[in-house]
Design a protein around this nucleic acid. Sequence first.
DNA 1: ATTCAGATTGACTAATCACTCCACAAAAAT
DNA 2: ATTTTTGTGGAGTGATTAGTCAATCTGAAT
Lengths: 186, 186
Amino acid sequence: MDKQEQILLAALKLFVEFGFHGTPTSKIAQEAGVSNGTLFHYYKTKDELVVALYVYIKTNLSECFNISQADGETVRATFKRLYLGWMYWALENPVEFKFTQQFNSSPYQSMLSNEAIQNQTQRLISLMQEAINTRVLKPLPVELLFTLISSHLYGINEYLLASNPAAEKKDEIINQSFDILWDMIT
Amino acid sequence: MDKQEQILLAALKLFVEFGFHGTPTSKIAQEAGVSNGTLFHYYKTKDELVVALYVYIKTNLSECFNISQADGETVRATFKRLYLGWMYWALENPVEFKFTQQFNSSPYQSMLSNEAIQNQTQRLISLMQEAINTRVLKPLPVELLFTLISSHLYGINEYLLASNPAAEKKDEIINQSFDILWDMIT
DNA sequence: ATTCAGATTGACTAATCACTCCACAAAAAT
DNA sequence: ATTTTTGTGGAGTGATTAGTCAATCTGAAT
């Protein structure tokens, strides 16, 4: 019974349902089954809690797949593995994914200065840069490529969550959308 | 000196900087140069103000360009016109654009039941459906196409705001990104 | 057994919040 | 000229909030 984690999970649930502003710390403590004081024992401020939750979720996500090219793996296979890994994580964890979106387009975004998370993005970027150098990917600015890929993924995810097709149909759309993406960037 | 508009503009500025939760109505009134009472005279609740601001901005946006195929205009030209119109609006009105993003991924989203705005989306959708029927666009579900296009646009916009290239370079990237998009969907 | 550091509680507080109310001013309608 | 409606201000209110604090509990080390 890790109270710290219970608090994060309670906060996640309430933030996504009612927004940051709409969920008082007292409700978070209540939902987590701990006292007000305990919450502030672990997180000095509400802001700190919000940022900690973001880091927690992003860390979970990063443990789902390994950002590097495995031996004998083609560039396309690496990209597909990462794309699918991220996509299925987002589909299986819609609340977490929604939270990251809310966070990213909020003023809290600028309060984030977490080395580990920025490092992770950096590894994706250099993987892409390498693929540009070996002329596998189009010679576009690497950040532009990164943006194209992630916004593509966000879009498909949103569509799948909204239309909620059968599992097979879903897999088909995801594979199809990766092909479209790959055509776009190579 | 339209106080109603002053309130909306003040709210826009503060919401984007501090978030919905981080800006009290008293600060909005202060920034707008009106009294607390005046604010609540025009908007019964804070929620109502937030939604009114969204409708206000979306209405302004929709006045920037006309969602329909002009006489003698190719489908590609129509789509490019709309894409560029939206993109340049977003680049020239970053605060407004940021606000719409914040709003769309917030719980306020569900409080929106504005006919005019939903109608507008519907017109875009049917424009796309027609292009699918005439086999100009790929035979994908129309909502998927819509999502692909708008997330593409969001992504490029984010990239341009972050990297802030020279005006010519910017135009080049936008044109290039439309070509990429067009290849992707046809 | 005693000590001690961290965990946990919940009542408490000072500040802040959304929103009200009423007095009055300006304008519009009669 | 008089009434009515609408706009405006700003002090005021009760509820709510983030965050504090002193008291107790727990469990491990000595």
